[in-house]
Amino acid sequence: MKKVVLALSAMCLIAFTSCKEDATKKIDENNVTAAAERDAQSSKYPVLTFDKSEHDFGELISGTNVETVFNYTNTGDAPLVITDIKSTCGCTVPRDWSKEPLAPGESGSFTVKFNGKGTNKVSKAVTVTANTEKGREVVKISAFVKPDPNAPTKAGSAAITPVAK
């Protein structure tokens, strides 16, 4: 049994050492250079920098439509592509952003419209999906929504009085 194990070990040793010379001859320097350049480029990302990360509309009467503009700049080393902008609910609608690549140093903007629904302090997040390193950036809007003084009040349940027989 020892002879079999020793013979297999010797064959494996010869097989592994004979492959080293052939493997180094198969490496193409052009491929190594191209891979190094590709790896250097893949570590460069666009950076999405906003002029403000949150906008407070202040006090609003319920149902008042308001909007704000978020300006942004690509401060990274690669073209910025925004693929989607979504809010946490249907009462906040982001719109008007460019779907074209934004070169480093260039700026853009998008509008966020809020329909003023809710009560008291309302805060909504708007998620920007882009080709940044994190993949998602978040900006926020907030407002204090007060009830409309001219809105009809909901009638409470009237008390039922028993009828005498």
Score class of each variant (00 low, 15 high):
Lys140Pro: 00
Lys26Asp: 15
Ser98Glu: 08
Glu67Gln: 08
Cys89Gly: 14
Ala7Ile: 13
Gln41Phe: 07
Leu8Met: 09
Phe70Ser: 12
Ser157Ala: 15
Lys140Ile: 00
Lys121His: 12
Lys113His: 01
Asp56Cys: 01
Ser53Leu: 08
Thr132Val: 11
Lys25Asn: 06
Asn131Gln: 15
Asn71Gln: 11
Ile14Lys: 00
Leu60Arg: 13
Phe114His: 12
Arg95Asn: 14
Phe110Glu: 13
Asn120Cys: 02
Phe57Pro: 04
Thr17Ser: 10
Ile141Gln: 07
Val145Pro: 00
Asp84Asn: 13
Ser62Lys: 07
Leu13Arg: 02
Leu8Asn: 14
Ala7Cys: 04
Met1Asn: 06
Gly118Gln: 05
Asp28Val: 08
Cys12Gln: 07
Ile85Glu: 02
Thr119Leu: 07
Ser142Glu: 13
Val128Met: 04
Lys117Trp: 09
Thr17Glu: 03
Asp39Asn: 14
Thr111Ile: 10
Gln41Glu: 10
Asp84Phe: 03
Pro79Ser: 11
Leu13Ile: 12
Gly135Arg: 00
Lys52Cys: 10
Ile61Thr: 10
Glu133Gly: 01
Ala23Tyr: 12
Lys25Ala: 15
Phe57Ser: 01
Ala78Thr: 07
Ile61Asp: 02
Cys19Thr: 07
Lys134Phe: 02
Ile82Phe: 14
Gly76Arg: 06
Arg95Gly: 11
Val128Glu: 08
Leu8His: 08
Ala103Pro: 02
